[in-house]
Amino acid sequence: MKKLSTLLLFSLFSIWCYAQNAPVLDKDKLFDLYQSQRYADAAVYLKNVLGDDTQDLKALTQIGYCFLMAGNNVEAEKYYSKAYQIQPQSLSILFSLGNISTKRGNNDKAKKYYGEIVKIDSNNFNVYKLLTNLYPSAKDSLRFVYLLKANQINPNEGDVADDLAEVHAVNQNYDKAYEVLDIAIRADRENLVLQRAKLPIANQLKKYPEVITSGEILMKDGTDAGVIKDVAKAYYYTKKYEKAIKLFSKLETLLMQNENTLYFTSLSYRALKNYKMAAFYTKKTIDEAISPNTSSYYALLGLVYEENSQFALANSAYKKGLQFKVSPTIYYRLATLYDTKLKEPKAALHYYNQYLRSKPDAENDKSEIKFTKDRIAQLNLTD
């Protein structure tokens, strides 16, 4: 807050000095507006006193700054753009225009302004960091280029190191990712974000003792599913299966398990020759790997085949869906497929009965249930 007040006072002083040879500003009023953070009122006051058509650089940037602080990005861009026309190589103006463009979702304009900063000052760390945010995908080559440049300028900065390590890891350059994080951690040993980011990379490099030592300390700081998983894997790879199972089970208790953690739990039990639990967790792994919507997807696929008169394929798709989940909808579609398209009444009767046994919704499926009961009665008469 003290830093902000100093900045505002300096800005106020600049405008006041300018005002010595211009329309008179009430510096006390302007100071009060700044102090109370009434930036919109300050912008309007400055515009009214200095004139909307002013060409003075300090006045333009100050009005633009007030509008920016007030959240009025349209007016802020208007005044900063005027200032840009007067002094196109001003870093502060370019940064402001880039910031405004980013806030308004115009990334192309932001890239343009930040690109101009790079041409003026090729070693400006802040602009490279801002540019990386405009390329959010870790697979984007330009994100890598800008992160690399920023990291070269300041290898100790944690956010850039973390992001660069992620890009290296995506490209499976684990040694480089580890080195980037290691340098930043040495500069800030209490940075838990960097330490957490380092664990999976250290696991990839088979630095299991380091993962266990660091991870156990991190787990005392709080519950982090990623940390627990990485430490559990390190215990598995060092053949400390009981400790691995204990941590994997903790994830289940916290409802943070996934296909991968269940798989390693199964492997741990298998290594201990506890085949009953190994089989149990293998089944859980399979269940976790299968989407609960898989049967619905096969139901849709079967319907598409059926509507295209590909009845054999529709039949196979419907039955495949039943392998994942019992579905009244699929039973009904199979019944009508055999009844109306394949002309196999015995099979149709079987699936109509299966449909009723699967307990369809009495309210939402009222018409289908009635049709099914009527059709079963008709098929039984002709049997």
Rank of each mutant, 00 (worst) to 15 (best):
Leu4Ala: 09
Ser5Asn: 09
Ser11Tyr: 01
Ser11Met: 12
Ser14His: 02
Pro23Asn: 15
Val24Ile: 13
Asp26Arg: 08
Lys27Leu: 07
Lys29Pro: 03
Tyr34Pro: 00
Tyr45Ala: 04
Asn48Pro: 05
Leu50Pro: 01
Gly51Val: 06
Gly51Ser: 05
Asp56Phe: 03
Lys58Cys: 06
Gln62Trp: 06
Cys66His: 01
Gly71Tyr: 02
Asn73His: 10
Val74Asp: 07
Gln89Tyr: 01
Ser92Tyr: 04
Phe95Ile: 00
Phe95Asn: 12
Asn106Tyr: 00
Asn106His: 03
Glu116Arg: 10
Asn124Tyr: 10
Asn124Ser: 05
Asn124Gly: 01
Phe125Pro: 04
Thr132Pro: 00
Tyr135Arg: 10
Ser137Glu: 13
Ser137Val: 07
Lys139Asn: 13
Ser141Thr: 13
Tyr146Glu: 03
Tyr146Gln: 07
Leu148Tyr: 12
Lys149Pro: 06
Asn151Arg: 08
Asn154Lys: 11
Asn154Phe: 04
Asn154Trp: 02
Gly158His: 11
Leu164Thr: 02
Val167Met: 06
Gln172Ala: 15
Lys176Gln: 15
Ala177Leu: 05
Tyr178Arg: 14
Arg186His: 10
Glu190His: 05
Lys198Asn: 05
Leu199Phe: 04
Pro200Tyr: 01
Asn203His: 12
Tyr208Ile: 11
Pro209Thr: 10
Glu210Ile: 06
Met219Ile: 10
Asp224Thr: 07
Val231Lys: 09
Ala232Val: 07
Ala232Thr: 05
Glu242Gln: 13
Lys243Gly: 00
Lys243Glu: 15
Ser249Thr: 14
Ser249Gln: 14
Leu251Arg: 11
Glu252Pro: 10
Met256Pro: 04
Asn258His: 07
Thr261Met: 07
Phe264Arg: 09
Thr265Phe: 06
Ser266Ala: 15
Leu267Lys: 15
Ala271Ile: 09
Tyr281Asp: 10
Lys283Val: 13
Lys284Trp: 01
Lys284Ala: 14
Thr285His: 13
Ile286Asn: 10
Asp287Pro: 08
Ser291Glu: 13
Ser291Val: 13
Ala299Pro: 02
Ala299Asn: 14
Leu301Val: 08
Tyr305Glu: 06
Ser309Gln: 15
Gln310Met: 12
Ala312Leu: 12
Leu313Cys: 02
Ala317Arg: 09
Ser327Ala: 12
Ser327Glu: 08
Pro328Ile: 07
Ala335Val: 02
Leu337Asp: 00
Leu337His: 03
Tyr338Ile: 07
His350Cys: 00
Tyr351Ser: 00
Leu356Met: 08
Leu356Cys: 02
Arg357Cys: 00
Pro360Asn: 08
Lys370Asp: 12
Asp374Met: 04
Asp383Ala: 10
Asp383Lys: 13
